[in-house]
Design a protein around this nucleic acid. Structure first.
Length: 808
RNA sequence: GCCGAAGUGAUGGAAUGGCAGACGUGACGGACUCAAAAUCCGUUGGUAGCGAUACCGUGCGGGUUCAAGUCCCGCCUUCGGCACCA
């Protein structure tokens, strides 16, 4: 059985063989219906770029593959699906340059991606593949949009949006990073355009509340909470002197109302236009307003340290609590898009107001004691006590807040108010390669949804994909397609020519996996009822405030209209760290440090590649690639392969190895579950080293190791399983069990410390209790010699670990 | 500025308050070989010593504890996110 002439480990042939067998047998097709408990493991589906798979993809995909494979061994009916998020700018830009239809490029790229994924041996169910650009898929993306429209959550608005000068396209707030375009790094400017918007702000509170019900890693929750940015406070009306009119502000510090010494409105605030006639220095105000408008987002961020502004001469506001007349200023440190676009300024207790007051020599009044407002604003809200504040004097901040809001509400001067930083989602894109927004503009009926039975609205073939300078989609030039009739009144009408952003298709793809071929609904209620929600979703941190938030929003909405059975789409969310180049920098073509997974597979095989990606470091941390490290993982698999030549006779585990075997079963299982793949693999390496140290392993020992290693390195394990005659196919073999009792060793070494410092080791029984230790150890020769001629004051015994001698 | 994570050998990284450096890489020495590769065995935190051994050592400074990489207080640095959000 264990002949000498075994061929060397040859990953290429083994991997091809098992990939073929898995495909032919449909090993990883998720069964439906099924009586087994289900497990739905999800990874972010790739954008099929022309560059092919990146080594970052297998990091996430292998991790969830390990979990999925282990779940099968645990007896679950597992669905581990994959698809392609294939709409998007790169394919379109490629099309512009090379005059190929984006659909053609996309299909080629998908084919290439699929081949690369298959070469890595992921246990994906390829029969459930989705492609967001397939009309049978985007039909339902459009359908969901129509439901949002029906409920008033999609609307068209004329508003200033983020415009990327280089992509010639509008962007969502989430797509502007550091004042520049997330995708191309190009300049982003404000541009007023009529845009489709989604009212994600209506779901701000639900998105926040839902986080308490799911098992997401904490930093994802924190980032989403910060992005949503809930703050509690009050809206307060300030009377404009000499009029019946009021100016409303939002504040989180109504307790400081007595300290308001001026007001500020945003330069875009309609208030300025309204009181144009009363503003004595209107020309100056208007000049300031124009300067502010010309600044791009980037400049605004850059220049945010120095306060600028102009007083609206001739206007005064009246503080509602003390009747004080205070000046009104315009400044771009106040944003039109948050709160009411106007603030009461309390320079004594707000850093920005303080800077502004210093710059323009405005009065600063202390209303909270505890700081030194001659030096800086005192913003502490814990310990402060109110002063100079009439009926609030002597109260602590928290109490003063409650008191003043009650007072304002009673007098009709203000109300409690909660604000969010989250803004509505800019949903239009003026580009070709996206889902057409399924509405028609009729001169008589206005915006008319395309009837659901006429979906999908297909993307027409155009000749030129070039975005236009006037901000219109390339589709606008397709007169044949644009002109249509109104579905309601039959009059000539025009189609919407904007398309959806790339985030649309990925906002619901996990639902389609549940029932991917359904042509009556996006998925059947039964299939959704069985599979949803996603048990475990792994993906990148970079999607926390984009895809992950958007898809939660869509799903919460679908739940509200009864289209899905559960509130939250994802039960558990984990995140992998980025793989950096060998030089420790981010991998990029321009840095020349990109590692191609194909090259790595060609050199060391798919199993070793998977193993290395899991072993290289902690899963959630960024790690530089190391070619030598990868080779070390290949060496480990070579050693595992050669274990077949060292198998010796014998049932069960060798006596000397029994505790280690059970410890390894325990640790590997637990570490996989905690995504501590690096330490799980280290433990298996230790075990293999130990096999070699004792001169070989028994069939049962090798069998166990194969099962433990199989989720990480499935091909070599299947091959060894078959070669050793354990059976055909191990994908559904039960996961090995361990026995705590069997981990006990007959004797162990524990450390002897003197005053907390390790001085030596002694051999004791692992069961030694504290009582036994106190009785037996002080008299033992190998302990006595550490005591010497000093006196033992105290002996601290930690069972199984050490004893510490306190001497005098 | 605010929020979050992290600082450990040459290097990637391990360590429920209990023997710091598991496992891997690299380096050095040895075996096998005509030789090399591959493989196997050994050594590998620093300083002193032939040596047993001693002292030092987890970003810096304090503290708690029999015992601190781990807990507390005060800093420094790096990375990620947000950023005039009232």
């Amino acid at each position: 059985m264990y002949q000498d002439q075994r061929p060397a480990y040859d990953p290429e042939s083994i991997e091809k063989k098992w990939q073929r067998i898995w495909a032919e047998k449909g090993t990883f097709h998720a069964a439906y219906p099924s009586d087994k408990p289900k497990f739905f493991g999800l990874v972010e589906f790739p954008y099929p770029s022309g560059a092919g798979l990146h080594v970052g993809h297998p990091r996430s995909y292998t991790a969830m593959d390990i979990i999925s494979r282990k779940r099968r061994m645990d007896g679950y009916n597992v669905m581990y699906p994959i698809g392609y998020d294939a709409f998007g700018l790169p394919a379109e830009n490629y099309a512009i340059k090379n005059h190929v239809h984006p659909a053609v490029v996309t299909q080629e790229n998908i084919k290439h991606f699929r081949e690369q994924l298959q070469k890595l041996g992921f246990s994906f169910d390829y029969t459930r593949e989705v492609d967001t650009t397939d009309p049978r898929y985007y039909r339902w993306t459009q359908w969901i949009f129509l439901q949002l429209l029906k409920k008033g959550l999609a609307y068209k608005a004329e508003m200033p949006i983020n415009w990327c000068v280089s992509c010639k396209c509008g962007l969502a707030n989430e797509e502007v990073v550091g004042g520049v375009c997330e995708r191309c790094g190009g300049e982003v400017v404000r541009r007023v355009k009529s845009q489709w918007m989604l009212r994600i702000t209506d779901y701000a509170q639900k998105l926040l509340d839902g986080l308490d019900t799911v098992d997401f890693i904490e930093k994802v929750k924190v980032q989403q909470r910060n992005w949503i940015g809930r703050s509690e406070g009050a809206e307060v009306d300030f009377r404009i002197a000499g009029t019946e009119d009021t100016l409303r502000v939002f504040t989180t510090r109504p307790d400081t109302l007595f300290g308001a010494t001026y007001m500020v409105v945003s330069p875009e605030h309609p208030f300025i236009e309204k009181y144009r006639a009363l503003i004595q220095n209107f020309a100056e105000v208007e000049a300031y307003r124009e300067t502010a408008a010309r600044k791009s987002d980037f400049e605004r961020t850059e220049m945010n340290k120095d306060k600028t502004g102009v007083e609206l001469m001739g206007l005064k506001a009246i503080d509602p609590v003390n009747g004080a007349e205070i000046p009104i200023w315009a400044s771009d440190y106040v944003l039109m898009s948050y709160g009411t676009g106007a603030i009461m300024a309390v320079p004594g207790h707000d850093t920005r107001d303080y800077d502004f007051a210093k710059a323009f020599d405005l009065p600063i009044v202390e209303v909270i004691a505890g700081g030194d407002i001659s030096k800086e604003a005192y913003t502490d809200v814990q310990d402060g006590v109110l002063v100079n504040s009439g009926f609030l004097d002597g109260l602590r901040v928290a109490d003063a807040k409650r008191r003043i809001i009650d007072w304002l509400e009673e007098k009709g001067l203000g109300t409690r108010k909660i604000n969010y930083k989250l803004r509505d989602w800019v949903f239009s894109r003026q580009r070709y390669w996206g889902e057409p927004i399924p509405v028609v503009h009729c001169p008589h009926c206005g915006v008319v949804p395309v009837p659901e039975d006429q979906l999908p609205v297909l993307l027409p073939n155009v000749e030129n994909y070039e975005p236009t300078d006037n901000g219109e989609s390339p589709l606008a030039k397709m007169e044949d397609w644009v002109s249509t009739v109104c579905p309601v009144c039959g009059a000539p009408a025009r189609r919407e020519t904007d398309t959806m952003p790339q985030w649309a298709g990925s906002s619901w793809y996990f639902l389609r996996y549940c029932d991917p071929h359904n042509d009556q609904a996006f998925a059947s209620p039964e299939a959704l009822g069985y599979w949803m929600n996603v048990d475990w979703y792994n993906g990148g941190m970079e999607h926390t405030t984009l895809h992950l938030l958007y898809s939660r929003f869509w799903h919460l909405f679908l739940y509200d209209i009864g289209a899905v059975p559960c509130r939250e789409p994802y039960q558990k969310r984990t995140s992998h760290g980025m793989i950096l180049g060998e030089n420790g920098e981010k991998m990029s073509k321009s840095r020349g440090n990109v590692v191609n997974p194909d090259d790595c597979i060609a050199e060391i095989g798919a199993d070793a590649t998977r193993l290395y990606e899991m072993f290289m470091g902690a899963f959630d941390q960024a790690i530089p690639w190391s070619t030598n490290g990868a080779r070390g993982c290949r060496r480990f698999l070579d050693r595992v392969w050669r274990l077949m030549d060292t198998v010796r006779e014998g049932k069960g585990f060798q006596k000397a190895l029994t505790p280690l075997m059970h410890e390894t079963i325990k640790k590997v299982g637990e570490d996989y579950e905690a995504m501590k793949f690096n330490t799980a693999i280290a433990q298996m390496m230790t075990l293999v080293n130990e096999f070699n140290a004792v001169g070989g392993c028994t069939p049962d020992e090798l069998r166990t190791l194969i099962l433990l290693l199989a989720p990480v390195a499935p091909h070599i394990c299947e091959e060894m399983w078959e070669t050793l005659g354990f059976g055909s196919g191990l994908a559904f073999e039960p996961w090995p069990a361990y026995d705590e009792q069997a981990m006990k060793r007959s004797e162990i070494d524990i450390a002897v410390q003197v005053m907390g410092k390790v001085r030596g080791h002694i051999r004791v029984s692992p069961d030694m209790t504290d009582e036994q230790a106190q009785r037996e150890l002080p008299g033992r020769d190998d302990v006595l010699h550490f005591i010497g001629d000093r006196t033992l004051v105290k002996l601290i015994f930690v069972p199984g670990r050490l004893c510490n001698l306190i001497l005098k």
